[in-house]
Amino acid sequence: MQREDWRRLRAQYEELLRRYQVPHPFRVEDLSAAVAAERGRPLSLLPMPDGLPTNTGICGMWVSMGARDLVYYTPVTSRTHQTHIILHELAHILLDHREPSVPQPEMLAQLFPDLDPAMATRLLGRGRTKAGTRQEQEAELLASVMWQHFNVAPVAVPTATTDTADVLGRVLGSFTGRGGRGRRR
């Protein structure tokens, strides 16, 4: 994708997100509820079940069923990463992406044990192998724009002592040629 494409898409995504009013502080559940209300269909956020094959590379999945949407995310990562996974899948929903790929049959059987295998093969799933596709790039960009638009970017909280920060400043200063001095008190 060219730089101009990114700029154009970013502007479109900012416009798209203006129609969603979510409370502050941001919760991904509130955005999911707003998306569900706009679409007129329930949207559930679900952790992927234990025991899924670990070599799939899939950490999130949007499944569009007849009258509802399911967004699965991996529970074995940080809350920040889970939020990003969910935002990425919500981006696919908002952009109305359709993907012809089919998740592994073992995974679908665990996610949907009561579904006919033929129906399960029509479900939407994405893995790392598809990360270079246009749809994946668009969803990743929209997820990133969501972080900024809704002001949810994780904030670093200083946890080091002043002494530790001074030592770090001297060490970093020795690499940057600034004389290696820490902060003055």
Rank of each mutant, 00 (worst) to 15 (best):
R8P: 08
P23W: 04
E29L: 11
G40C: 03
S78V: 08
A109Q: 15
K130T: 13
E99H: 10
R19N: 09
D116L: 11
Y72N: 01
T54M: 11
A91S: 13
E138H: 06
A67C: 11
P103N: 01
H88I: 01
R98K: 10
I93T: 00
E138S: 03
Y13V: 07
T77R: 00
M61W: 00
R170N: 10
A139Q: 06
M146Q: 05
V71R: 03
A165W: 15
A118N: 07
P53Q: 03
P154E: 04
R10K: 10
S78G: 10
P105V: 02
E106D: 14
M146I: 05
V157T: 15
L90Q: 00
T54K: 09
L9F: 13
R3I: 15
R134P: 04
P53A: 06
A165Y: 13
S144A: 08
R98A: 10
E89N: 03
A11H: 12
R8Q: 15
L52K: 02
R181P: 11
E14T: 12
E15H: 13
A120H: 04
G132K: 05
L94F: 00
Q135V: 12
G127W: 02
R7K: 15
L45A: 05
R7N: 14
A120D: 03
R98V: 09
A36T: 07
A33P: 07
T164P: 11
L123T: 07
F175L: 15
A160K: 14
D30H: 10
R19D: 11
P53R: 07
G180V: 13
P75M: 05
W6H: 15
P25S: 06
